[in-house]
Amino acid sequence: MRQVIIIAGKELRDGMRNRWVLATTALLAALALTLAFLGAAPTGTVKVGALAVTIVSLSSLTIFLVPLIALLLSYDAIVGEVDRGTMALLLAYPVTRWQIILGKFAGHLGIMAFATVAGYGIAGLALQWAGNEDRGAWTAFTIMVASSVLLGGVFIAIGYLVSTLVRDRGTAGGIAVGVWLFFVLLYDMALLGVLVADQGRTVTAGGLNLLLLLNPADAYRLLNLTATPDVGGFAGVAGLGARTGLGPAVLLGALAAWVVVPLAAATALFARRQI
């Protein structure tokens, strides 16, 4: 445990040093503030609270941005250190390989968590100060921020898996971009195409549920757009969410599984890798 904390601490400090923390926090805060004030403007005097609108637009932003940041943060973690030669030295120390992976994960997740909580939190508080009292939406907002960190964790874990699979940093980077494109853009398009072509003959509701859970980005989307009736009522997809019958517990479980499985696979692969 001690070794895990030492390595996590080093990753956190690295993140501060190379401005990763600052850059991601600033980026998320700037986008969140923009969405909060510009995106909430058209609500006017409609019954929907500004924060609820912000949650819908912010979670759509998160689906694009957070996986990208997480993958950029993590794809280099193993292959880069092996390449530079720092891994050989680290492994000569009394540290096991799973401690290295877990320590790095804790450190990178810490960076993601700080950037998300601080960046989105600023926007949430700013809305509050601006006089948009909306107490009910705070629960949904908290869920949104927490699940965004979890989504970051999912893609950090996937990034490590990529990083342990390949022998070259460039390849790892390329695969990371491919993973992002697949889960964030292509998967939903393909799913939509299949549904349209299929016309509900072979893909049942249960099958669709499974397909949605197989993409962490979709699990995240469903979780946030249907979490509370307040937000759900505003997000167009609410109908879908209601009919899927996927409760928050199932969706959170899917996201957690998406963290654990790639991380375990990365650890197993790394244990067998020869440096």
Partner: peptide, 10 residues
């Protein structure tokens, strides 16, 4: 190690 590599930012 041969050609020791250390973390440049520390």
């Amino acid at each position: 190690p041969e050609n020791v590599a250390l973390h440049p930012s520390m």
